[in-house]
Design a binder for these strands. Structure first.
Lengths: 210, 210
DNA sequence: TCAAGATATGAAGGATTTTCCGGCTTTTGG
DNA sequence: CCAAAAGCCGGAAAATCCTTCATATCTTGA
């Protein structure tokens, strides 16, 4: 996950003493706060520094530039998200595919919904720049986990697992994101979530019938 | 579509004389070019103005700020995209739902794929600011069209059309976007596109059986 | 305790966005 | 057709913001 960090975004120095560790955390937290309250446009270095209670100079000690802040924030977020998905994939080994899909949707949807404001803010910020690398790394990591889970299904149909995995993953992650972009009321969001599950299961059904 | 433009992004003045109309077009075209060649990060006002062959002052005559450029660009793009979808929806009235879905996926996928570089660049740029309004307006406009199409299906199942519409739309648009974010090779993209269709049709099947 | 390394500061330098207004073109109305 | 009004353009200057750097303060370890 951390291997392919674009050089322009790599952390300048790693915090060594305790206080600097606190500082870095404060800066990241401040970045999120400002992002939520003011939006990307008003996310200025001085604002973040002020909210974190440090000087700009201190910020640049650990982050080479403004984008690195957002990058680090997303990295942290995606890391914990990947962990949760991996956990689900581990738990669901060997069960029927339909159940796997339900569990996956549950996990992903829940993770995104818990703090919808954060989800929304980060969804936007990711596209900013070279966060491509980040997103790709995340996708690959998660795909590996889901692939392993699917391959272990007790009712695995005689079809290429890679293809199934790609289809399910793309549809699920894509739909969830789209659901967030429309600001659906809870009721409709629920309904959509169920439809998504139904769709995936119906799809698996067609594969099984072969 | 143009009703809910955020005040911070509204065009300063509408071009009245012919030459200013040309100027505005040149500026938008230049914006796209710079976006494609240099990326969002290097999209500076002077660069755009230079490429458009006008001065910065002229630009600000029509666009209140830099983001307004990107906003207008997306507005233009989404407008033609919506037109294409609406056209498809009109043509497909009264046919079976499965065919509608196929046609919809075809249209959307084709529109996005024709100029993948533009699609990618704009997908990123949208998040920049209050383009929320833009995306919402687009979604609503397109939803209206697809809803009308679906409601006219000759094999309409006895289920709430609104729900079906939301489900299909979210899944299709979301999946297509996700497909673009992963930079899939053509073969896999094709496969995914087919899976998406299969999934939608399988879903409709389950509704029909009631 | 004291030096060496680590961390923090904020004014200054550089780059970019945005404003402002004088001068030039086109349109309008008599 | 002509002059006044409206519309349009250019580019320097002001306002913001990002980033650097020299200097000051704190921590660690011997």
């Amino acid at each position: 996950m951390t291997e392919t960090v674009p050089p322009a975004l790599k952390a300048r120095k790693r915090p060594v003493q305790r206080r600097s560790g606190v500082t870095v955390d404060a800066i990241l937290e401040a970045t999120l706060q400002v992002l939520l309250r003011e939006g990307m446009k008003r996310l200025t270095t001085t604002r973040v520094a002020a909210r974190a209670g440090v000087s700009v100079g201190t910020m640049y000690q650990y982050f080479p530039n403004k984008q690195a802040l957002v990058y680090a924030l997303n990295a942290r977020y995606l890391d914990t998200l990947a962990e949760r998905i991996e956990a689900t994939c581990t738990v669901q080994r060997g069960v029927p595919m339909a159940q796997m899909v339900d569990a996956l949707i549950d996990t992903y949807w829940a993770a995104k919904t818990e703090r919808a404001d954060v989800t929304r803010a980060l969804y936007r910020s990711v596209t900013e720049l070279d966060n491509d690398a980040l997103v790709h790394a995340f996708a690959q990591r998660v795909d590996t986990a889901t692939h392993a889970m699917l391959a272990s299904a007790c009712d695995l149909p005689p079809v290429d697992v890679r293809a199934i995995n790609l289809a399910l993953s793309s549809v699920i992650y894509g739909t969830v994101r789209n659901a967030f972009e429309r600001g659906l009321p809870d009721a409709e969001a629920e309904a959509l979530r169920d439809s998504l599950g139904a769709m995936c299961r119906a799809y698996l059904q067609t594969l099984a019938s072969w």
